[in-house]
Design a protein around this nucleic acid. Structure first.
Lengths: 346, 346
DNA sequence: GACGTCGATGTGCACGTTCACATCGAAGGT
DNA sequence: ACCTTCGATGTGAACGTGCACATCGACGTC
């Protein structure tokens, strides 16, 4: 339909050049903000682009510069509140810097599933990688099959082959536990996340540290799967013994399921049992009782991950990241330990 | 390090060809599963690829075929449970078909924000688009600046310029409302979503339909923003009049906030007021009381959207999609209407 | 006024892949 | 035994862009 682009194909810089009566190279310079272009020429070129509805061909550009302007995100449970929020923030930040984001979800936790997702990203020729799927195994796979691009982990892994944000989960968990101890609780159970998750392991560590510092007896932690359903299930199990006065759950969903089970079992939260969660998901303050939890800024994590990665990509000095320490948010699900052990009431 | 790839660049098909002692074209044929290749030759080529750690260059391929193998996702609140789940499903399904997914989040609801996100995707040369940000305005922008690629909406829009999944939100909302009516409720309030959202509007319609059918008085709906915080706020407002016995909230988060406010105000759910939500988010069954809601399969929606889009891309006959009708899930937050009006109790 | 400098622009090639067409030998029909 | 057909492979060009280098005129310097 447009006489200036004879073929059916999209207009190229050469078509623009012809219309603006310059060389294709001049058009290229306009595109790349080259300094020595006469304003008049630039305007003519821009006008021609407008007329032809020209759009640069990203593939051609990527081919010649061998830069894809794409960063990969390797996620495992992008459905959960935390990861979803971080991913959204990563996308926003990346777009702001002219980058594209390609996400691959790890289907199952198997090495094959991880390798598949990674392979998908590598075929895409990503320039950098953000790992937001913090199973330990993911880093083993990454170490085994080096990706060849800089990558950043959203969790501190203790490894040195990549950068990691320092969201200090350990301290967060420690504070949550400490809060319970300060309230007089002595029998505290930890409902942990899957221990092959970096985050779950860190939260467990914080819990153990606090228990150790206070020289309390250690109840064997329960290993969960992050889901509210599991929290409910774990709560039913715990009800059979009732040898505790507080539970620290590794995330809010499990905490909510837990409270559900306790209510069903006739235990009052926080009267008989205190419960602390982790994450501060948006509904946490609206459930009953409002959940005491640890707030973590997932958006900020996502933003920082991108900043860190782009810094590294552009060869700039990698800024030292200050630790993000999650904040304890005290609400209604925690109270002073009951004077008598709840088992006495049962 | 590798003597076969003299330069520092990644190996190309020509490098592979040299090593396998064939022409570059033969290598290309192996890559594209061309039928007439002698098995022996194919093996030699594959071995060479393995040795060189060859990876096809996507940019070069995209350049010559003018096919990016990328589909775009235009999302607005990718953080919410529903969209996040659908996006994850879209990515999985796309990957399964060898496609890449590029997501752009709409920063704000302004036409500029929408256009920005869209422009970002267009620069990426996407082959198709899934719209999961169902504000009415998005479709206006899309109609104004035609994208030039087929696109699919996750919500029925009633427009004919694109395909849309038929998740029958209207029927879902109608059933939720009908459920309340069946329980004897006559004074039902709708806590709606933002009316520039397709989904919110459909749920509102379902609500109005049911109220109209039963010839009940219409309480003016409250327009919310999907958040639990708003639900709480709306609940506080509603408490000032108490001229209702049931609320149908347009999503679960608002329903949960609402129940929080009612509890604070001394109203019992479901004794004094029944509450119904929409979406069946994972915690819905674990809050107190367990939330009666409408289940919607977001993963399935995502999968179908991809199937629909790819069908269209490959020029195949576009299959008629059967309607997905969301399912009412009755739990503890609804009960028979109180014999006396709650206002009398206050 | 000859010469170097520099701003503004043009020319040709390279990037890695696929496509259209060419080549070559073996199998098969008459 | 000759021609056709087809399987297996090779050759050269093209895709749209950016880079290195060339060109050309204007300006200032000695």
């Amino acid at each position: 339909m447009n006489p200036d682009s004879p073929k059916g194909r999209a207009p190229s810089i050469r078509d623009v050049a012809r219309l603006a009566e310059v060389s294709h190279q001049t058009v290229s310079r306009v595109l790349n903000d080259h300094p020595s272009i006469r304003p008049e020429t630039r305007d003519r070129v821009l006008a021609a682009m407008e007329t032809l509805q020209y759009r640069p061909n990203r593939a051609a550009r990527a081919l010649v510069t061998s830069r894809s302007h794409t960063i990969g995100v390797l996620a495992s449970t992008s459905t959960e509140y935390g990861p979803a929020t971080s991913i959204a923030a990563i996308e926003d930040a990346a777009r702001e810097h002219g980058y594209y984001v390609n996400t691959a979800n790890i289907a199952d936790a198997s090495p094959e599933g991880i390798a598949d997702a990674l392979e998908h990203l590598m075929l895409q020729a990503i320039e950098g990688l953000v790992v937001i799927a913090p199973q330990v195994r993911v880093f083993e796979v990454l170490a085994g099959a080096p990706v060849g691009v800089p990558f950043v982990s959203l969790q501190s892994t203790g490894r040195s082959d990549h950068l990691a944000l320092s969201v200090d989960q350990v301290t967060g968990a420690r504070r949550a536990t400490q809060h319970l101890i300060n309230l007089g609780h002595r029998e505290i159970v930890h409902l942990a996340g899957p221990q092959d998750w970096i985050e779950a392991e860190a939260r467990m560590r914080g819990f153990l540290d606090a228990i150790g510092d206070a020289e309390l007896d250690l109840h064997p932690p329960i290993l969960g799967d992050w889901s509210a359903d599991f929290g409910y299930f774990a709560g039913r199990e715990l009800l059979r013994h009732r040898d505790f006065t507080a539970v620290f759950a590794a995330n809010d969903q499990m905490a909510i399921g837990l409270m559900h089970a306790f209510r069903d079992g006739g235990l009052d939260v926080p009267g008989d049992v205190s419960v602390v969660g982790f994450d501060d998901i948006p509904v946490a303050q609206h459930v009953w009782p409002p959940l005491t939890t640890v707030y973590q800024d997932y958006r900020e994590s996502g933003r920082r991950a991108v900043a860190l990665l782009l810094n590294q990509l552009h060869g700039e000095q990698v800024l030292e990241v200050e630790q993000i320490v999650p904040r304890l948010v005290v609400r209604g699900s925690t109270a002073e330990a009951p004077v008598r052990h709840p088992v006495a009431r049962a």
